[in-house]
């Protein structure tokens, strides 16, 4: 917890304020879901980068240094847990918050994601309003407020 806590504190000033337009990286392999989410986020004025492959995700995230990563748990190439672990271990991504999406809402998955330092956890199917609302809170609220 201590390392994660430190990261979160460093990221306490949302990066959004620094560069104006919020950047979101969406890691999702189901194209129909990805298109819908991208549309919803872009409509809010946020900048969305889409990654459909688990193996390519961490490089794209390191490059983009997004404010929020929306991360699907079940991905081809690499699991969402591994990507989450990499994000949380990377000091350069200390300000990046992670929303994990999964079709498996079991307590076990939730706990594992929480252990790895996930900021929010959401199960599919979700409502669009709920998703956008959650991302908005993650962008504006104080960092490190995990939940979901």
């Amino acid at each position: 917890m201590s390392e994660q806590g430190r990261h979160r504190q460093e990221g306490a000033v949302p990066a959004v304020e620094a560069h104006g337009r919020a950047r979101i990286c969406l890691v999702e392999d189901e194209m129909a879901i990805a298109e819908a989410i991208s549309f919803l986020l872009e409509r809010e004025g946020w900048q969305v980068e889409l990654v459909a492959d688990g193996a390519a995700a961490i490089d794209a995230i390191r490059r983009a240094r997004p404010d929020v990563v929306i991360l699907d748990l079940m991905l081809p190439g690499r699991s969402g847990y591994d990507i989450l672990r990499d994000i949380k271990a990377d000091p350069a991504l200390a300000g990046t918050r992670v929303l994990m999406l999964t079709a498996r809402g079991q307590e076990r998955d939730r706990e594992r994601a929480a252990t790895l330092g996930v900021d929010r956890f959401m199960t599919k199917p979700f409502s669009n309003t709920e998703l956008v609302g959650t991302v908005r809170v993650m962008l504006s609220g104080p960092a490190g407020e995990a939940g979901g």
């Binding site: 129909a32 819908a36 989410i37 079709a103 599919k124 199917p125 669009n128």
Partner: peptide
């Protein structure tokens, strides 16, 4: 079940966009 939930999610998100935008 996982695949079913995925497609339900896509249906719900797409339909919601069509209905509310």
């Amino acid at each position: 079940l996982h695949a079913l939930l995925s497609s339900v999610t896509a249906v719900q998100a797409s339909a919601d966009i069509l209905a509310r935008t």
